[in-house]
């Protein structure tokens, strides 16, 4: 496992994402709410570029105490990224496939050294 340079911290705005190529492997690095997350860029469905699509908040259906639906809302706390091939959605903070959380993208450790960001792969 070696440290691969991702970019300068100062150039990585919140909401940014980069794809890092390590040999044949591809890793998506996201900065979200001040933290970095790194996952395999191969979707667990058909191998699409899982980290290269939209980032979009989880859609929630809020239910009232009497079990009636209040309608659809964007989550205030849970962010997803979406494989652009078929729409498989992944939890930004865990890499879990939100439709079946037993499925999880491989995650990679991020190391910050001064102004530089590295992924360990």
């Amino acid at each position: 496992m070696a440290e691969q340079f991702v970019g300068k911290f100062s150039e990585f705005k919140d909401g940014d994402r980069r794809i890092i190529f390590v040999g044949d492997n591809e890793i998506g690095v996201f900065r979200h709410d001040g933290r970095f997350y790194a996952y395999s860029n191969y979707c667990l469905h058909q191998g699409g570029p899982a980290c290269e699509g939209l980032t979009i908040a989880k859609v929630e259906e809020r239910l009232r105490p009497d079990k009636t639906s209040e309608g659809l809302f964007f989550s205030d706390t849970e962010m997803h990224f979406v494989c652009p091939w078929h729409g498989y959605e992944y939890d930004m903070k865990t890499g879990e496939c939100v439709s079946d959380r037993k499925l999880k993208l491989r995650s990679y450790k991020i190391v910050e050294k001064g102004d530089e960001v590295y992924v360990v792969a």
Partner: peptide, 8 residues
């Protein structure tokens, strides 16, 4: 397109 999630 699921609200643009399927970007193509």
């Amino acid at each position: 397109d699921m609200g643009g999630r399927v970007t193509r």
